[in-house]
Design a protein around this nucleic acid. Structure first.
Lengths: 243, 243
DNA sequence: GAAACCTTTTTTGTATACAGTTTCATCGTT
DNA sequence: AACGATGAAACTGTATACAAAAAAGGTTTC
């Protein structure tokens, strides 16, 4: 698994109280999102159980839920691993998110109350500041919060839930396929511009803005087909993952 | 639960061999779809275990998966029940499905190979025939097959999976909110027309066709707000949300 | 030196036991 | 007769034990 992460979790768990399967889901999801648990990391049930101080029953339930969230790959008789979506799936995920988030934004335009708009603008500002000072984890956090808030306030809760899922999945693949040369996947004015259009109530402009944003984001990734290195990597490369 | 269904399952299980959690998921999902297990039906773990001849561990896994498919409602310390989506959620589910299935149809137009098109047309014909002779279960079966095939052949597998989920959910709410006066929710020419446009390769026409179809379907339901029982239930019953 | 084979270890699959919670019916009080 | 308390039964939450499968390691053979 990942030893530094172990330690942190252990400390946190000892401090806190009882741990439920939902807590585990959230902590693992977050760790994947923050790139503390890279793709293909093994997640054995007993180890996770020790980390969180619970038995396999609880871990198992958490892993099943993480699998249905597409965060983890759970194959019969094999240890669960952090999922590593293919390049093709990455493209498809972005496309799906454009469709769904575009619609959500269009519906949301002009319907957000002042309080939420203020929170969104604060998060956009905090994101910019985090980027200024090079604090990438904080930047990701604020960026995610923005999209999460849009999903949460979607008038259509079904679409909202779908968007939450897609935001998570795109975040994972961004971490996976980010061009190594880029320090961050920050797009200077995209979020402020989107918020502006949401505030002005122009649904179609907001939709277009979301489309542009997601196309730009996708363009920051290196989605060229790997000749066969993917296969080599997953077959040869993953021996060093002790615990 | 449901005693007739019990008996059937028991017979089937004795005949077959070993049962996995995935088998249980499929059998329960199908039973819900076919209205053998009406909404709010309790699904106690031990009972299900006896029915399928497995222990609670397996049933539990199946139930959590069914919950993430939105088929079952699993609240802490309470017996799982077949989910009964609200009227509002029903509307939102239809809207989401229009968005997703419309896009899938648009992408699919002109790209379906002859074999799949033939299968689709066969299913449409079988649906019409089943309707002629008043065989509603068979009609539903064929109708579902059509939409399932579209989802399965979607070039975008992510959208395809989302569509599969939405088709399931709309089927459940159709069963729930169908006007009692209607024998069936059959729309004479919708499927053949859609297949025709898919074959002709006109994406936008196909999308429009899907939109019309789903609007018509939704219009066959009785989605007027119920005065008392449902709303009271869902409002008063919400004291124990999960964290 | 590499491939095939066998043994050992690790890890998951399933059943089961026990504890904690909810539900429901019964009984007593007003 | 309605209301609330009480206790039993039903059910879920969690831990654990054992069986089966997969992975790892080491040995032999070519």
């Amino acid at each position: 698994m990942n030893n530094a992460w172990h330690k942190e979790m252990l400390a946190e768990v000892r401090a806190g109280g009882r741990i439920s399967d939902q807590d585990i889901v959230e902590k693992v999801r977050r760790a994947v999102l923050m790139q503390r648990l890279p793709p293909d990391t093994k997640l054995p049930e007993v180890t996770l159980g020790e980390v969180f101080g619970v038995s396999r029953s609880v871990v198992r339930k958490a892993l099943t839920r993480l699998a249905s969230e597409h965060v983890v790959d759970q194959r019969p008789n094999q240890v669960a691993r952090v999922r590593a979506p293919s390049i093709e799936e990455t493209r498809e995920t972005f496309e799906a998110r454009r469709l769904v988030e575009g619609e959500v934004a269009a519906q949301l335009a002009g319907r957000l109350d002042a309080e939420v708009m203020a929170t969104l603008e604060t998060q956009a500002r905090l994101e910019a500041e985090a980027h200024e000072r090079g604090d990438e984890p904080a930047r990701i956090e604020h960026s995610l919060t923005i999209h999460h808030l849009l999903a949460e306030h979607s008038p259509n809760r079904v679409l909202g839930a779908m968007l939450t899922d897609l935001v998570l999945r795109t975040s994972i693949v961004i971490a996976l396929y980010k061009r190594p040369s880029l320090a961050s996947c920050y797009l200077e004015n995209d979020h402020p511009r989107l918020l502006d259009r949401l505030g002005k109530g122009d649904g179609e402009a907001a939709r277009a803005c979301v489309h542009d944003h997601l196309h730009s984001l996708e363009a920051l990734l290196d989605l060229r087909p790997r000749e066969n290195s993917i296969d080599l990597m997953s077959i040869l490369g993953r021996t060093a993952e002790e615990s």
